[in-house]
Computed example of a mutant assay.
Amino acid sequence: MDVSLIQMTLISEFLDFLKEYKVVALAIAFIMGVAATALVKSFVDNLIMPFVSVITPSGDWKEAVLAIGPVQLGIGPFAAECINFIIIALVVFMVAKYVMKEEKVEKK
């Protein structure tokens, strides 16, 4: 078998793989997800957290640490990431609801 024929077959199979599994669409969705995550994180850090910081006694709750003996548990950073996750999940839900134009997003 000719080397160029093997290369063409391999390239053809690779292109079929990209089309069949929609790898390009998945890559675009991943990039958009990263950008949306950065946007939501900025929204939470710069617009929501200043209000939360005013409400909390020390004001610097994102740096809160719970010390249990020699172990330091970063409860503040974890709480901030939980808030980020909830907002991102809500945004994804709203986008899915709008794009799918269904009354209820159902598990398939």
Rank of each mutant, 00 (worst) to 15 (best):
A79E: 01
I88C: 03
P70F: 04
L47V: 12
K101M: 06
G59Q: 05
W61D: 01
I55L: 14
K97R: 13
L5V: 09
V52C: 05
W61V: 02
P70Y: 04
T56M: 13
L73T: 03
L26T: 15
A80P: 00
V71Q: 13
M49N: 07
I48H: 01
I68V: 10
V105T: 09
L39H: 04
F14Y: 12
V3R: 05
T9F: 09
I87W: 00
P50A: 06
E102N: 12
T37C: 11
A89Q: 15
P57R: 14
Y98F: 07
N46T: 13
M8R: 12
E13L: 14
P70E: 15
S58W: 03
V44E: 02
K19E: 07
L26F: 08
L66F: 09
I11S: 13
F30V: 05
G69N: 05
M49E: 04
F93S: 05
F51I: 13
V23R: 01
L39D: 05
I55T: 07
A96F: 12
K97D: 05
V34H: 15
V23C: 03
F43E: 02
A96S: 10
A79S: 07
K41W: 15
I86R: 06
A80R: 00
L47A: 07
K22L: 02
L66W: 11
P57F: 08
K108I: 08
V24A: 00
K19L: 14
S53I: 08
V105Y: 05
N46W: 10
V54A: 08
I86V: 12
L47R: 08
F51E: 14
D45E: 14
V95A: 10
V92Q: 10
Q72T: 11
E106C: 15
I28E: 09
G76E: 00
A29F: 09
I75R: 00
L39C: 06
A64K: 03
Q72E: 07
I11C: 06
F43P: 00
I55Q: 04
D45T: 06
I83N: 00
K107W: 04
F17Y: 10
P50S: 06
V34D: 11
Q7G: 11
L47H: 14
V92C: 14
V34C: 10
L18A: 00
E81K: 08
I28H: 11
K108E: 14
S53E: 14
K108A: 13
I87C: 01
M1C: 12
A35S: 13
P57A: 11
G33P: 01
Y21M: 07
L26Y: 14
V95R: 10
D45C: 03
S42I: 12
P50G: 06
E20A: 13
A64Y: 04
E102L: 05
N46E: 09
F93C: 04
V65N: 05
K108W: 15
I75N: 00
A89T: 04
K62H: 04
V91A: 02
V54C: 13
